[in-house]
C-alpha cells in the first residue's frame, strides 16, 4: 500500500497535503474555540465611551441607540455633551481619524450645567418627570417637583415640556473639594498675552 502510494508522486502529494490540511484545520478550529476572546461587543464599548446624558442631541433616543448606529457606520461626531474628548476616544477605539464636533447637533459646553426647578413656581404638572430620561426628577401630580442633583445629566430635555418655564440650567458649583489646579498656560500664549497687554498699555 505505502509502496504503491510512494510510486505515485501525484497521489502522495495529494494525500500529504490533504492530511496536513485536516490536521492544521483541526488545530486552528480547536485554538479558536479554546482561546476565544470574550471581548465586549463593539456596541457595548462605544456605549461605554458615550457620556450617557441620554439627551438625544445626536438624533437618537438615548446613548445606546447612537452607539449601535456608530457601530453600523454612522458619524462619530454627533455628541455635543461628550465633546472632543469623546470623539477622540471613539476614534481611538475604532481606529479612525477623529473629526471635529458636528455643530449641527449643538456646541460643546465648557462647564457642565444641571437642571434646577424654581420650586415655588412649579405647578406640579409632572411633564418634566415624564421627559427626564434618567428619572432624576422627583414629585407627583399637583405637588412640587425637584431635581435630584447627583442624578441629573444636564440633558435639557425637561426644559421644553415645562408649561410655566420654571426650570433653569445652572452651572454646577465648583466647590473646594472638586477644585484642582488648572493646566498651566503655554509659553506661546503667555508671551502673546503679555505682548497684547503691553500694546494696550502703549495705546
Amino acid at each position: 500500500m505505502i509502496d504503491s502510494i510512494a510510486q505515485q508522486p501525484m497521489l502522495a502529494a495529494l494525500i500529504a497535503l490533504v492530511s496536513l490540511g485536516i490536521v492544521f484545520g483541526a488545530l486552528l478550529g480547536f485554538a479558536a474555540e479554546k482561546f476565544r476572546v470574550q471581548g465586549d461587543p463593539i456596541v457595548e464599548q462605544i456605549d461605554n465611551l458615550l457620556p450617557q446624558t441620554q439627551c438625544g442631541q445626536c438624533g437618537f433616543p438615548g446613548c445606546r441607540p447612537y452607539a449601535q448606529s456608530i457601530a453600523d457606520g454612522d458619524a462619530i461626531n454627533k455628541c455635543p455633551p461628550g465633546g472632543q474628548n469623546t470623539i477622540n476616544a471613539i476614534a481611538n477605539l475604532l481606529d479612525v481619524p477623529a473629526p471635529a464636533l458636528d455643530e449641527e447637533h449643538g456646541e460643546e459646553e465648557e462647564i457642565k450645567t444641571i437642571a434646577y426647578i424654581r420650586e415655588d413656581e412649579c405647578i406640579g404638572c409632572t411633564k418634566c418627570i415624564q421627559a427626564c430620561p434618567v428619572d432624576a426628577i422627583l414629585g407627583a401630580a399637583k405637588l412640587m417637583h425637584t431635581v435630584i442633583v447627583s442624578e441629573c445629566t444636564g440633558c435639557d430635555l425637561c426644559i421644553e415640556p415645562c408649561p410655566v418655564d420654571c426650570i433653569d440650567m445652572l452651572p454646577v458649583v465648583q466647590g473646594i473639594v472638586q477644585w484642582h489646579w488648572p493646566t498651566p498656560p503655554t509659553t506661546i500664549d503667555l508671551i502673546a498675552t503679555s505682548k497684547m497687554s503691553s500694546q494696550e498699555d502703549a495705546a
Binding site: P51, Q52, Q54, E151
Partner: peptide, 15 residues
C-alpha cells in the same frame, strides 16, 4: 464622570 455615566445609563435603562 465614568461612574456618573454608568449610573445614568443604569437609570435610563431601568426607566
Amino acid at each position: 464622570d465614568k461612574i456618573d455615566a454608568d449610573n445614568a445609563r443604569q437609570r435610563f435603562e431601568f426607566r
